[in-house]
Amino acid sequence: MQAIEILPVFLRKGHLWSLCPEHADSFVVAWPVGAQPEKITEQAMVHLGMQPTVLHSTSWRQAGKELVLTYIAVVPPSSVPPPSWQIVEIARSELARGDATAPPSSIGVAQVQEHALRHLAWLRKDDPAIARLLDGWSLVLADYVPEPFRALGGLAL
């Protein structure tokens, strides 16, 4: 089985905020075989009443029986999430890393989000289009070490 995890974030008053559903650690939707993941993600965001300005896949991981592809969705600070959702200021997190012969024992959403923001920092430096869209994000992303798309939870190679 495969699924898409969406991490909506926004910048307001110099701080990063995440939007979190009430009854799950993150918002995860089904990803039917053959469906384009970016279309599934965009449709899910529209269904939630939010229009992302940046939508990018950042990592994938195995979570139980599911292959989970994570997308970070940058939304305008004026976005209104569903009423039950929470708005949480983003805190830094250590990334889960395995050793040479075994993956990390668990990967939490905070760690997935940390990597997603590191990837956003990478995209901001690497992609002129995203750099333009995230024009005011240089300060908040300054301390995030840029990282490319990666598999989380794999062996350290």
Binding site: M1, P21, H23, S26, F27, A30, H47
Partner: peptide
Amino acid sequence: WQVTCVCGWRTS
């Protein structure tokens, strides 16, 4: 089938 509720709850 799989369903995700707006609140984040899922079932399949």
